[in-house]
Write a protein that binds this DNA or RNA. Structure first.
Lengths: 336, 336
DNA sequence: CTTGACTCCCAAAACGTTTTGGAAAATCCT
DNA sequence: AGGATTTTCCAAAACGTTTTGGGAGTCAAG
């Protein structure tokens, strides 16, 4: 009993009536509505998704792009986030498809394919760049979307982001309060908004109290990137006594660098993301995390509201960053 | 230029010809084929996915169910796996949708929804049970699917699995070779195939050399579950000198238990999954991992072949388990 | 000149739903 | 009783493809 037609025929009704009965319209009598429902239940009938999508001109699908470069899928519980998002969307009849980006193609290509083939109703974008071509494309096409991270786009768009500036400003100030003067920053690639804004938080905190913001090294947002950047900083004549790292992954790489140099155990360090792994490093990695719970459902909710046409300005969430107090940020050191 | 009709009209051709030209059929002349292709390119035309799916009676979608219980999404690089799978599928025109299972529903409900609504062409199932109702359902419906993990289903089905029996047998034998006699097992829930087969590997290795296989405790496949199970074993009058744990997560919980008891540092331990986190525990966690690379693409390939109707027997892969040599499996202990 | 084969194109049907615009029957009101 | 209103149902159109089953031309062979 795959068909609406077959179902209707077996009930001696028109497909119109059966369709409307199942959708609960009031212009079919309660009696037949119930009769149809039971028959459908018994026959295990479900409307054909493709047909409905075609007719309703909605894909009932949302895509999330997954960059394939390592270290690009940053958030610690990314899979949990996707799962939460998909679950929330599913309760509104939408499914989440994952769209990894092969090395041979750009993220823009992927967006184009999904959008032009009318394969999705909306998109979820992660790891935004300061100037993000995906955002520009989707805006020009008028496709609803939500980003994980802000951009510098002149026209506003929906996003959820952590307040990286404040978080890194506070972390730097905390080090200053412990007597640190030479506080270095292990920065991520500056075209990424999150990396840029975190560096600015550190820099402004240093500038404000008249400390040098020269101790900054940039690297790939990976363990190896953090390792190399840390090494670069530690080779300086007057090396830092504390390191503020753009991500936990980079911080873990920096810890490896510290283990390899003399006096490395006197250098304090803090990361960002609250990776589970950080609880097991030695020293345990002090870090930061975005506040708020069930991020995925949050994204889903914004996506649904964006699809419903709510203006972008009302779909922007900036979450506070909280400090995760472990060991690595308070290692004993010789003050200057 | 969203339409085939509009595109055809602008070219002075029928939609039939345009459609066939774009699909590269030989019954349209090379000249017009090229002309159509260029026009389509210029107009940014892509066929409407829902319409094609309806007409071709294919969803062009594959779903993977994500159990929402903690510790259920076992494989270490699960997201990488999904990403690899989706990428491979995409190159054949299929997209991967993730289908988390809300607590209020069973995995079977989710399968039913996707299958009966003809929303997918195939499904990917993770964490199989020995008797798995999802498998039985999909088999009865004739929907192609591949599982991550075997089952005890009488009719064969496609799967990829690690040879947990051999892996745990070898790990147990390795402990015996180091002089251990009282080797315990921290088991996962036995209705899961992987948990059962790993326990059997340990048990058979013990039985074969006439050692007692009493030292076994079962727990949830989580850190906490491993902690509690380890505590249970360690409270025994003659406690184990080595522990073989069903998963790394449980092993990490067991490590916590060891830290809390006297002489815990003399008890060796080994896990399974090669979680990245294991490299950072103290002691660094010795573990096991399934061999083979790009598991995701592997799954995708099997899915495609299953969709093409290849018999299940040819779509079963059992991969060897390799040992990951770190510290936790060779802690000094007082021999019996 | 006719026939058959071949090339290139197209009209129409089908996929399974939802929605529109009534129509018949029943009920209500005066 | 007769008109107005409400209730309950339905035929047909539309969504945008792909595929079927030809139908004109063109060309070569007989």
């Amino acid at each position: 009993m795959a068909n609406l037609r077959q179902l209707a025929q077996s009930l001696g009704l028109s497909i119109t009536t059966v369709s409307r009965a199942l959708d609960g319209y009031s212009d079919v009598s309660v009696a037949t509505r119930e009769r149809v429902r039971e028959a459908a239940e018994r026959a295990g009938y479900r409307p054909n998704a493709s047909a409905r999508r075609l007719r309703k001109q909605r894909a009932e699908l949302v895509a999330v792009t997954l960059p394939s470069d390592p270290g690009q899928v940053g958030p610690p519980h990314f899979l949990d986030m996707l799962s939460g998002c998909a679950e929330y969307l599913a309760s509104f009849g939408l499914n989440l498809v994952i769209a990894p980006v092969p090395r041979s193609e750009s993220e823009l290509d992927i967006c184009r394919r999904f959008v032009d083939g009318r394969r999705v109703d909306a998109m979820l974008l992660v790891r935004t760049k300061r100037r993000d071509e995906r955002v520009e494309f989707l805006q020009s096409r008028g496709i609803p979307f939500v980003t994980n991270g802000r951009t510098e786009s002149p026209t506003p768009h929906p996003f959820i982001d952590g307040d990286g500036f404040s978080g890194f400003h506070a972390a730097t100030t905390r080090f200053q309060g412990s007597g640190h003067r030479r506080i270095g920053h292990i920065a991520g690639p500056q075209q990424y908004y999150f990396a840029h804004v975190r560096r600015m938080g550190w820099k402004v905190a240093m500038d404000e109290v008249g400390l040098s913001s020269d101790l900054c090294a940039e690297g790939a947002p990976t363990e190896q990137g953090g390792y190399l950047a840390a090494l670069e900083l530690l080779r300086q004549p007057s090396r830092p006594t504390a390191l503020v790292c753009a991500t936990d992954e980079m911080a873990i790489g920096a810890l490896r660098a510290l283990r390899e140099i003399d006096g490395g155990s006197e250098i304090s360090i803090v990361g960002h993301d609250d990776l589970p792994i950080g609880a097991f490093t030695s020293p345990a990695l002090s870090t930061m995390r975005m506040t708020g719970q069930n991020l995925g459902a949050n994204f889903a909710s914004l996506l649904l509201r964006a699809i419903d046409g709510e203006p972008a300005e009302e779909l922007q969430e900036l979450h506070a960053i909280e400090f995760v107090d472990r060991e690595s940020h308070r290692r004993p050191f010789r003050g200057v």
